[in-house]
Computed example of a mutant assay.
Amino acid sequence: MIQDKHCKIITLSDRRKEDITLELIREVPLSIRVQGKSHTVIMRTPGDEVAHVAGFCLGEGLVDSMDDFSTLGYCEQDINVVTVTLKPERVHLIPDILKRKGFISQTSCGICGKELIDDLKQNLTTLPETSKVSMEAGLHCLDSLSAHQMVLYSCHAAALFTKEGGFLSVGEDVGRHNALDKSVGKLLVQDRLDMADLLVLSSRISYELVQKAARAGISVIFSVSGPTALAVELAESIGMALVSRKKNKGLLVFCGEDRLLSD
């Protein structure tokens, strides 16, 4: 269960005080073991463990597709541990990634912008020019994001759509990176990730989310909040469009205007 901790709180409005009970979002550790060794521990909202780890492995460059996994799963007695075994041929291709102590989804990594961009681009390729998204479809998907969420309170959401605006998957979590990993992972394990062209986020667009989206082949991101400067720099370098909503009305296109089709 995502919401299972009851908490008594006080509400204040119009100089009136009222005691109420709310269900709060859980945040618990998920241990990821790769090739029999502890790889990392993620604080996350319980649920979609296998999809979460599949998306994480794709975003971090551990795999390029489901074919790179030998096994992926967890013991039903302990859903806080997911074990990953890669095929031998994949292990030989990524020795540096397996040894890496830091991860893409760490904003405070201490790496300067230029070094980070150069490092990230080694695992990315320029997105196909043929992948374009309708502005109208993107706006509709942005407006409808909440309709696809099970939990609105305290959770980030990341939803994937086709270029025509068809809904594919959604991930929700206290961490915006986890939400995206879950959404991507659901399609990856179903072998449907190639259908996704549009990502819609409830959070700001950070460089980590651009990296993860690019690894998933996503060419357009719409978000309720704007991107960071580093996110725009990375997105521009691979031909990705970043769009967010203006405070009053309309949209802000930060890069990749040629990805957007006017209706």
Rank of each mutant, 00 (worst) to 15 (best):
S223K: 08
S202W: 01
M240D: 08
S244D: 12
D197F: 00
L209S: 00
S244N: 10
I218D: 09
E233S: 15
L209G: 01
S237I: 09
R245W: 01
L199M: 04
L199I: 05
M240E: 03
P227Y: 03
A216Y: 06
G226D: 12
K212R: 15
A241E: 04
V232H: 06
R245G: 03
L242H: 06
E233W: 13
K247H: 06
I218L: 08
K249Q: 15
C255M: 02
A214Y: 00
K247A: 14
E236D: 05
M195F: 12
F222K: 09
V224L: 15
S203W: 01
I238A: 04
V253L: 02
V220W: 04
C255N: 01
S203I: 09
R215P: 04
G226C: 12
S206E: 10
V232S: 03
A229K: 13
F222I: 06
K247N: 11
S244F: 03
Q211R: 12
K249R: 12
L252K: 15
R215I: 01
T228K: 06
S237H: 05
L199R: 08
N248W: 04
E208W: 06
D197P: 11
G226F: 00
G250H: 12
Y207Q: 11
K212Q: 10
V224S: 15
A235S: 03
E236P: 08
V224G: 13
A231T: 07
I205C: 05
D197I: 05
V243L: 05
L230H: 07
S202P: 06
S244V: 09
A241G: 10
L193M: 12
G217E: 03
V220L: 01
P227C: 03
I238V: 14
E233H: 13
C255Y: 03
L252M: 13
E233M: 14
G239I: 02
A229Q: 14
T228H: 03
V220S: 02
S244Y: 09
K247V: 11
M195I: 11
S202A: 12
F222H: 10
L251H: 06
K249V: 14
A235H: 10
S244K: 10
V232G: 05
G226W: 03
G239F: 04
A229I: 15
L252D: 14
K212Y: 04
Y207F: 13
S223W: 10
I205E: 04
S203A: 05
K249W: 13
K249M: 13
D197R: 14
I238C: 04
I205M: 12
M195H: 14
V224F: 11
A214L: 08
M240T: 08
N248A: 09
R204G: 11
L234D: 01
A213F: 00
G239R: 13
E236W: 07
A241V: 07
R215V: 03
A196E: 06
C255P: 09
G250C: 13
V200Y: 04
N248E: 15
S219L: 02
R204M: 12
S219Y: 00
R245E: 09
L199S: 07
V210I: 00
L252H: 12
E236Q: 13
V200E: 01
P227T: 07
C255E: 02
V224M: 14
V210M: 00
S237K: 07
S237R: 08
A216F: 07
G239S: 04
